[in-house]
Simulated assay, not measured.
Amino acid sequence: MSLLRKKAAARIGSAAALAALMSVVLSGCSMDTTSPSTARKHADGKHPADFGPGDCRRAKCIALTFDAGPGPNTPHLLDVLKEKKVHATFFLLGKNHVMKYPDVVKREAAEGHEVGNHTWTHKILTKQSADVARQEIEKTEVAVEKITGTRPRVMRPPQGRTNDSVSKICKELGVSQVLWSTTAKDFSTNDTALIEKRTLEQAKPDGIILLHDIYPGTVPAVSGIIDTLRKRGYTFVTVPQLIAPAQLKPGAIYRP
């Protein structure tokens, strides 16, 4: 394992592997999750919609999302996405990533990607006091806004762990929570072919793919994932475009 990979693993924590293997844990959460199709079905039609490259009420859509960056591999990933004409959703860590790579954050926003929040230091929000959980979310909101001029409107809770207290904080801060349907478990392997295989096996319409742009095996898999899924008839969209014409609801939990 390289030094970079060791540092990344330490930041995210070994518990992330267990969380991904066990899917998503909604700790103490009584709120329902909302699927993209349900969100679209209940859209009020009162607001202009950003459908992106396709109306997901008719198109076979899927969203690429990347957690825990930006990092040294992110500029190459952005090159790939630009070449493929794909917009993704990035859930960024604040302290050691947003603050270290502000130019990459600015580029993500400038090139049309959805810039989201993955907290300040990757603390498990359900294990924190309300004040600490709020700080973890809000500090990254503020940092991204200073760089891009816009606050993130989507947030992915570390390990997918959320509850009523976290949802209340997100509602007050104006951010929606986004979970996922596909994980390649790329935190556990540098095998690019395996990452691609796992992603393609799990891909489904209205899916949200979880990858990490901080791991060296992941970015090389993205081109093949895009090409194969396009051959299967998929249209790539950001998370807000996936639920359009519905509007994101602060505090809501979106999960395919």
Rank of each mutant, 00 (worst) to 15 (best):
G116P: 00
G112D: 05
S129C: 11
L78V: 10
Q135W: 13
K95C: 04
T89P: 03
H87W: 11
P102E: 00
G94R: 03
K106L: 09
Q128F: 09
N117Y: 13
D131R: 13
A133P: 03
T126W: 12
K127C: 01
F91K: 00
T119M: 05
T121Q: 12
D131Y: 12
V86G: 04
L92V: 10
N96V: 05
G112R: 11
K95M: 10
T89M: 05
E138N: 14
H97N: 13
T140L: 06
H87R: 15
A88M: 04
E83Y: 02
S129E: 13
H118F: 06
K106F: 05
E145W: 05
R134S: 14
P102N: 01
D79K: 07
I137G: 04
R107Q: 13
L77F: 00
V144C: 14
D103V: 07
H118N: 08
K85N: 14
E145D: 10
K146T: 09
R107M: 07
E138P: 06
W120K: 06
A143R: 02
K95R: 15
H122C: 09
V105N: 06
L81M: 05
E108T: 01
A133H: 11
K100C: 00
E108Q: 08
E111V: 02
R107N: 09
H113E: 10
V105A: 04
K82Q: 15
K82M: 09
E145S: 10
K85E: 10
H87G: 08
D79E: 14
K95Y: 11
K85H: 15
H76D: 08
D103G: 03
E111D: 13
V144N: 10
